[in-house]
């Protein structure tokens, strides 16, 4: 299998962390993963972007042109990346921040991720809600493995933040089911 993902949004939304989170679940499940961020001057203006390739085989190009999955956090992101989508592409949209859905080709998964995060009293877990939606929509990773990696990534903060993140992951997951 090969799964090519593009994640786009704005700085502070946890775009890069979401990519690393999914990559690390893949590695935990014995797959290869290659994660590539935007960096330096590309970040100016608050834009945030990363690409992620997951495969059973050796990953040759880490650069994603046409994604299998496109995760967009806000209006600017969908406008910038919708054109990359093909018929096969699954587009996971944070509808809370996308008033005008400009996506053409692709299968849409609509999640009011920021709204769900707000209901959990934490804007910061919007990316985790989207991760939950991804798990449910693509069925590549198990929920349990995602929990394991989440705990590892939270590290010493797991005690205070784990439950909120689990709730966010679950809410995202259930919003798709």
């Amino acid at each position: 299998m090969i799964e090519q993902i593009i994640i786009a949004g704005s700085g502070g939304q946890g775009v890069l962390t979401l990519g690393i989170f999914l990559a690390r679940i893949a590695v935990y499940e014995g797959k290869n993963a290659a994660w590539l961020p935007s960096y330096g001057a590309e970040k100016r203006g608050g834009f945030s972007f990363c690409s992620l390739v997951i495969s059973d085989k050796e990953i040759y190009s880490p650069v994603v042109e046409t994604p299998d999955t496109l995760i967009v956090f806000d209006q600017r992101a969908i406008e910038s990346y919708a054109a990359r989508a093909a018929e096969k592409t699954m587009i996971i949209e944070n509808t809370s921040l996308i008033p005008n859905d400009t996506a053409g080709k692709g299968k849409k998964v609509l999640v009011a991720a920021s709204g769900i995060a707000k209901a959990l009293q934490s804007d910061k877990v919007t990316n985790i809600v989207l991760a939950g939606a991804y798990l449910a929509a693509k069925k590549i990773f198990t929920f349990q493995n995602a929990e394991t990696i989440m705990k590892d990534m939270l590290g010493s903060k797991a005690g205070s933040l784990m439950q909120k993140n689990i709730d966010a992951l679950k809410s995202g997951f259930e919003s798709v089911k």
């Binding site: 590695v27 290869n32 290659a34 590539l36 960096y39 880490p62 650069v63």
Partner: peptide, 10 residues
Amino acid sequence: DGLLGQLMEN
């Protein structure tokens, strides 16, 4: 190069 510097892999 910049890609190899920024890229994350196992």
